[in-house]
Design a protein around this nucleic acid. Structure first.
Lengths: 123, 123
DNA sequence: GGGCGACAAGTGTATATGCACATATTTGAT
DNA sequence: ATCAAATATGTGCATATACACTTGTCGCCC
């Protein structure tokens, strides 16, 4: 599945995890590393390293917070544009799968996986 | 999910991917690298490297085939014993999730994921 | 029987991931 | 005012994964 989405996103020059990352940043009003990592269900240190190439490509910008230990992330103009393109590609890819699987089953499997991951997390 | 199963398997000293690997070997009558990798849906070169620690621990043995290019894998006695223990742990972990999710939904989500991955593979 | 293309597998390199540890800053108790 | 504990983050190491390239062997065609 990850490979399928990565292939679909290639025209935007992003991978699935990078789109998820940019999207989370766009939804979260300048989050710090911890909030962002928690929102993505990703290890804090993995986030640090995944952020680097996006910073190099100037898709995100990092700012110190008032608390100088913190580093806050925001999208640049280029980041917003690239994310918008990637989300179009993502949705087209999703559309492909949903139309072939059936909308009902697609909805259902997402719900089931949500519950399953919650169970595994708490168990 | 992977982390949940890894934690459950820790007493056997194996991770989820390693159990899947040993199990595939036990089902496949001395397969070569390519057949085994295909059966696991794993890259051939990833398999080579994942096999190494299992060979070091003497859970699997590697044999040249009649065709000397090939290397065939089989379980050692220790490999069979460790796999049996791991499968017990695996099933207990699975039981936990299935009982909490409901047997019907559990069966359903496995079927749905099977179909989804086939779709993504072919698309 | 010689050589060339096909084929099985391993190695080099790059990215993703996460735990343990290190570093820098803030906060609070005295 | 000072210092220790808490907190936010980065780094070192180890593992998993996969693509591109290399190496060794086989088979066939002449």
């Amino acid at each position: 599945m990850a490979q399928y989405y990565d292939a679909a996103l290639a025209p935007a020059g992003l991978k699935g995890t990078q789109v998820a990352l940019l999207n989370a940043v766009s939804l979260l009003d300048r989050p710090g590393m911890q909030r962002l990592a928690a929102a993505l269900g990703m290890d804090r240190t993995t986030l640090t390293r995944n952020l680097r190439p996006l910073e190099v490509r100037a898709l995100v910008a990092l700012w110190p917070g008032e608390d100088q230990r913190e580093r806050h992330v925001s999208l640049t103009g280029a980041g917003r544009a690239t994310l918008a393109e990637a989300l179009r590609l993502w949705e087209a890819a999703q559309e492909q799968l949903v139309s072939r699987l059936g909308a009902d089953r697609a909805r259902r499997v997402l719900d089931d996986l949500e519950d399953l991951s919650a169970l595994a997390r708490d168990a």
